[in-house]
Design a protein around this nucleic acid. Sequence first.
DNA 1: GAGTGGTCTAGACCACAAT
DNA 2: TTGTGGTCTAGACCACTCG
Lengths: 247, 247
Amino acid sequence: MTRRHQQIAEELRQAIAEGTYPVGSALPSESELALTHGVSRGTLRQAFGTLQSEGLIGSRQGARRVVLATTPSQSFTELRSFAQWARAGGRAPGGLVLSSARGKATEAQAAQLQLAPDDEVLHVLRVRTLDGEPVLLERTVYAGWAADAVERLPDDCESVTQSLYEAAGLVMCHGEHHLDAVAAGTTDARELGVRRGSPLLRVRRTTTTADGRPVETSDDRYKPGSVVFTVRNSVQANPLVRTSPTA
Amino acid sequence: MTRRHQQIAEELRQAIAEGTYPVGSALPSESELALTHGVSRGTLRQAFGTLQSEGLIGSRQGARRVVLATTPSQSFTELRSFAQWARAGGRAPGGLVLSSARGKATEAQAAQLQLAPDDEVLHVLRVRTLDGEPVLLERTVYAGWAADAVERLPDDCESVTQSLYEAAGLVMCHGEHHLDAVAAGTTDARELGVRRGSPLLRVRRTTTTADGRPVETSDDRYKPGSVVFTVRNSVQANPLVRTSPTA
DNA sequence: GAGTGGTCTAGACCACAAT
DNA sequence: TTGTGGTCTAGACCACTCG
């Protein structure tokens, strides 16, 4: 059963994509759409909220909502596994474990994974491919309590996140990502097929379960050109003028 | 006048920061907090929604909300100008225009700025500093209709976004950002004080007004080490299992 | 001043989690 | 079974935009 507000959001999304409401134009008012869809204003606002968080529409008090874009910004605001993300873009994800070893957590790792110092962790080096081409090298550290499930996965596992859910009921739910750029090291260069010292996009991330328990922390390095991260955002309620008198 | 739901969100934010609700613990239920704050459940949910979008708490139907982090994720989900962002981190922003010239828009630029081909645009090359150290080189293209206001700004303008608002009423409201990594070119190397070919984080962005009209499109290159972008996100309503039967 | 979105209420029912 | 969050309703008032 799909929720009513989701249906309405999808209808509006399509109408925007089809050009019924071109970029820059105003949408019908809340009360108008609530009437035509036979739904209360609250439900309609919920649908609008979804579209707003996708960056499709913008709003200001007193004025009608405005179309900002025709396609939802994907990728980031919604956490996606590499495999899901690849398939959403119509590309075939692949992967291969290069090495896997148990060891002790460093102090920093223990802190990030909320473990006691010297707790056991599992280090995995994994290359990920898109349509057969290597695009991403992952250095992942799994918390010890998740290590068994990870080790049982096949080396060429296509979707780690999906498999961990199916095999161990592990749901990776929240994530924190830090992005910067680094020069490719020897291993990076060899596995990704680039020159040593060439630029890579680095994403350091920590993933947690629904109740906030960290499962893994990872250093992911992307070959440029193959992958671009996109974020769409807005000044939410407060226009610039309100943020501070002099800032 | 601050809204009730904002006050409650702020109270909860502080309680979380102070450790009243440690990471991983469950928060009181909606109805409970609604009672103690003397407010309806809807208002309380609005406050919770804010905290959720800041990545502080997570929720699943049927279970109590859970604390995921103690500090709100800044920077990205909320659009911020360089100057605002710098001040929020307690650092002093600076800037200097290196060159500024009018010209015709390329086809790609015209499309991105929603201009007619051959419309006039303003190219600005600007270096940005943090505590005096250059960290960012901006190559910005402004739509012709905004060019006059931009040219009237002082060369060492500290906050372009703020000044454009004050001088011309221009409010940059929405933005789309594409992130990848590139090697530093000759100009990048000279202005940022790095070696040619060393890795830079590139952010290509387009900024628009409240009604979706593009003001500028820019190629920004960040010196690594000085700046890290952070994104915190969640699988929203649908847990992994729901996304697709086989994906 | 009319219309719009933002806020808030007080109720209801449902799907799901915990026990 | 009980309690929780997710959905939805039908109203109300306010702050704001716009003609």
